[in-house]
């Protein structure tokens, strides 16, 4: 048992003293788009700015998650035929997948899973091979220009490993971002959806909460008020390595075929 475990709050530990899996429940129905999470993340983790460009995408000028934006607040303006306006705001982050493609494909072991069940890049080991980037089904991790290595949310490994709440969650004024043991968060989220449905918010749905989904459930899941793709999220992501066995078999067969073709090529003269 790692020494730091002694620093963790009891609530983070299982009866046997090992840590519970910790994660995020982001309830976008109470997000006010203040971007405190985005700023707190950069401040704490020393992430560089992401450039100064006016996009015209509502109030979003950082566009999406990447090497220099680990928390990203999306703004979606919608108008009903009746003229009623609604403004969806959602703070996106690395999903810390149960089956993490980025981690699976990393050839150097730079990406690893922590005792708290989060997925973290070790900047001293990453060699910038870039494989994790197209492997992530959510478009989260990315390469930092000039540096070449891959960067993403560490779920504030330095804070969480000493019992502190992640910076973004602590900064969030409305508790749209809730950090805690994943199983508890999932119960709370289910209750919240029911409550919203009772209040007539029929659109409320959970995203990434189910352990049976394509990535075995996200360590950071969301309550959304519209389809995931509206927020720039894939509706049915599947960890790419699910088919890896089949892929290797096809490759072997193709390789064998190649050898066979060569053999055949030697039948005959010239």
């Amino acid at each position: 048992m790692a020494p730091y475990l002694s620093e963790l709050p009891v609530g983070w530990l299982q009866p046997d003293g090992t840590p519970r899996r910790m994660g995020f429940f982001t309830d976008t129905s109470v997000c006010i788009g203040c971007k405190a999470c985005e700023v707190a993340c950069k401040q704490w983790n020393g992430v560089p700015d992401d450039g100064f460009t006016f996009t015209g995408y509502s109030y979003d000028n950082t566009v999406g998650l990447g090497a220099d934006t680990w928390r990203h607040v999306a703004f979606i303006e919608q108008t009903a035929p009746a003229g009623d306006v609604r403004w969806l705001m959602s703070s996106d982050v690395c999903k810390h997948c149960t089956e993490a493609a980025c981690l699976d494909v990393c050839p150097t072991g730079s990406l690893f899973r922590t005792d708290l069940g989060t997925v973290v890049v070790q900047e001293d080991i990453c060699n910038g091979c870039g494989y994790c980037i197209p492997a992530c089904p959510f478009g989260v991790i990315d390469q930092r220009t000039g540096d070449g290595r891959a960067w993403k949310c560490t779920l504030c490994h330095d804070r969480t490993s000493s019992g502190l709440e992640p910076a973004c969650a602590q900064a969030c004024p409305t508790d749209s971002i809730q950090f805690g043991p994943l199983d508890e968060l999932r119960e709370r989220a289910a209750a919240r959806v029911d409550a919203l449905h009772e209040r007539g918010v029929g659109d409320a749905r959970l995203y990434g909460a189910s352990p049976d989904d394509g990535v075995g459930g996200a360590g950071a899941f969301f309550l959304l008020l519209d389809d995931p793709e509206v927020y720039g999220l894939p509706p049915d992501p599947v960890v790419t390595t699910r088919r890896l066995g089949a892929m290797w078999r096809r490759a072997a067969a193709a390789g064998a075929a190649m050898a066979a073709v060569v053999a055949v090529a030697f039948v005959g003269g010239g």
């Binding site: 203040c34 971007k35 700023v39 700015d49 100064f52 460009t53 006016f54 000028n61």
Partner: peptide, 26 residues
């Protein structure tokens, strides 16, 4: 006002983390 900036800007337009969020007058 915008959440991203503060009044006449002395406390926000000099900070990259706030300026990138609303980079231009609109």
């Amino acid at each position: 006002r915008l959440t991203e900036h503060h009044t006449a800007g002395g406390m926000s337009r000099w900070l990259p983390y706030l300026s990138e969020l609303q980079p231009e007058m609109f």
